Simulated scan of single mutants.
Amino acid sequence: TAAVLGHAGPEDVEPDAVFLEIGMDSVSAAELRNALGRALGRDLPAGAVFDHRTPAALAAALHAQPAGAATDP
Rank of each mutant, 00 (worst) to 15 (best):
60 A>N: 08
20 L>T: 14
51 D>M: 07
40 L>V: 11
8 A>V: 12
69 A>V: 11
71 T>R: 11
4 V>P: 00
28 S>M: 12
4 V>E: 14
14 E>Y: 00
36 L>Q: 08
30 A>K: 01
55 P>A: 12
55 P>I: 13
51 D>P: 04
15 P>Y: 04
66 P>M: 04
18 V>M: 05
67 A>K: 12
47 G>H: 07
18 V>N: 06
9 G>S: 15
50 F>M: 10
31 E>P: 00
61 A>N: 07
33 R>E: 07
45 P>L: 09
72 D>G: 07
65 Q>I: 03
16 D>W: 00
48 A>E: 13
50 F>E: 03
44 L>Y: 02
19 F>M: 08
25 D>N: 14
62 L>F: 07
4 V>D: 04
10 P>W: 06
39 A>H: 09
66 P>A: 15
60 A>G: 11
38 R>G: 00
71 T>V: 09
16 D>I: 07
22 I>P: 04
28 S>A: 11
13 V>P: 08
21 E>N: 11
58 L>R: 05
66 P>G: 15
57 A>Q: 14
26 S>R: 07
54 T>C: 10
26 S>M: 06
23 G>A: 10
30 A>M: 15
64 A>P: 03
30 A>F: 02
23 G>V: 08
24 M>Y: 02
43 D>H: 03
60 A>V: 06
1 T>V: 10
12 D>L: 12
46 A>S: 11
54 T>L: 07
47 G>Q: 14
3 A>N: 04
19 F>H: 05
24 M>H: 00
18 V>Q: 11
62 L>H: 06
22 I>Y: 00
44 L>D: 00
36 L>P: 01
58 L>S: 06
1 T>H: 08
33 R>N: 04
34 N>D: 14
25 D>G: 11
63 H>L: 12
42 R>I: 06
26 S>F: 06
37 G>Q: 05
11 E>G: 15
1 T>L: 09
21 E>S: 13
57 A>F: 00
14 E>Q: 12
66 P>L: 11
5 L>E: 10
13 V>R: 03
19 F>W: 15
59 A>K: 10
2 A>Y: 10
66 P>H: 12
60 A>Q: 13
3 A>E: 15
36 L>M: 14
34 N>P: 01
34 N>M: 11
68 G>R: 08
25 D>Y: 05
71 T>M: 07
66 P>C: 02
45 P>H: 11
25 D>S: 09
28 S>P: 03
35 A>H: 04
38 R>H: 13
31 E>A: 12
46 A>G: 03
30 A>Q: 03
65 Q>N: 00
24 M>N: 02
71 T>Q: 14
16 D>F: 02
57 A>Y: 01
46 A>H: 04
37 G>M: 02
29 A>W: 03
34 N>Q: 12
66 P>T: 14
18 V>T: 12
13 V>G: 06
55 P>L: 11
42 R>S: 05
11 E>P: 01
47 G>F: 04
41 G>K: 12
55 P>M: 12
56 A>I: 05
52 H>I: 05
7 H>T: 02
19 F>S: 05
42 R>F: 02
67 A>G: 04
6 G>R: 09
20 L>D: 15
24 M>W: 03
33 R>W: 02
